[in-house]
C-alpha cells in the first residue's frame, strides 16, 4: 500500500527538533504501551503484520499521533479484532521470561526457502516498479531504480507475504547501494550514496525489464 508512513523523500515536515536530556519514556503510559507491545508481541502475529497494523492507521490520525500513541492504537485494534491468542498451555510470560525473550531476540533468518542467492556483490540490479496492495518494505522513492549489490545478508523472511499470513517465503536479502543522484536527481552531491536492504523479489537483473 502506498501509505503516508512511506515518507522518505518528503520535505514538508520542517526541521529536526532534538530534545535536551530526553527521558526514555515521557510519560508512564508510554512505558506500559512499549512493554505490552513487547511482552505480547508473539501473540499478535509476525513483526511484519504488526508493522502493517501501524500502516493502516488512517493518514490524518497517523500524522497527528506520536510514536507510542500509534503503538497504543495498534494494540487496541489487534485486541479488538481478537487477533491475540493466549498460549496453548495457558502460561503467561513471567518477568524472567520477558527479559530472556528480549535478550534472545527473534532472528529473521531462515535455513529453509530460497537459499541460493541469484545476485553477487557488484551486480547491477533494478528495483521492480511494484505497487503492492498490502505491506511492503520497498520504499516508493526506490522503485524502478538502478543500484548495485553491496552485501549479501542471507535468507530472510519476506515481509510482503509474512504480514498477511501468506507464509514466510524466505529468500535472499541484499544490501543495495544507490547513487543519491539516481534516486533524487542531479541536485545532490555526486559522491553520496544511499543503502537499502532489499529482498530478491524486489529486484531484477539489468536488461531483464
Amino acid at each position: 500500500m502506498n501509505g503516508v508512513h512511506d515518507m522518505g523523500g518528503m520535505t514538508c515536515f520542517g526541521s529536526v527538533v532534538a530534545e535536551d536530556k530526553e527521558p526514555v519514556f515521557h510519560d508512564d503510559w508510554e512505558g506500559r504501551v512499549f512493554a505490552m507491545s513487547i511482552a505480547a508481541s508473539g501473540r499478535f502475529g509476525s513483526i511484519d503484520g504488526r508493522r502493517y497494523a501501524l500502516e493502516i492507521i488512517s493518514p490524518g490520525q497517523y500524522l497527528r499521533s506520536s510514536y507510542y500513541e500509534r503503538w497504543l492504537m495498534r494494540i487496541e485494534q489487534l485486541a479488538e479484532q481478537k487477533q491475540a491468542t493466549a498460549s496453548d498451555d495457558g502460561t503467561v510470560l513471567s518477568a524472567t521470561d520477558a527479559e530472556r525473550a528480549a535478550m534472545a531476540g527473534r532472528p529473521a533468518t531462515r535455513k529453509v526457502g530460497r537459499l541460493e542467492p541469484r545476485f553477487s556483490v557488484g551486480d547491477t540490479v533494478r528495483t521492480r516498479l511494484l505497487q503492492p496492495a498490502g505491506h511492503t518494505r520497498l520504499p516508493r522513492y526506490a522503485r524502478g531504480r538502478v543500484g548495485k549489490i553491496a552485501r549479501l545478508h542471507g535468507t530472510h523472511v519476506f515481509p510482503d507475504t509474512s504480514a498477511h499470513r501468506l507464509g514466510e517465503n524466505p529468500q535472499p536479502l541484499y544490501s543495495v547501494e544507490f547513487a543519491a543522484a539516481e534516486l533524487w536527481g542531479p541536485g545532490v552531491n555526486a559522491k553520496d550514496k544511499l543503502y537499502l536492504d532489499l529482498w530478491e523479489d524486489y529486484l531484477d537483473e539489468i536488461g531483464q525489464i
Partner: peptide
Amino acid sequence: RLEDYLVEKGLVARDALDRLV
C-alpha cells in the same frame, strides 16, 4: 484499560511489564 484487558485475558503479566520498562 488495555493493560487490564490483556492481563485478564492471560496475555501479559504486570510484573513482566514492570521488568521490561
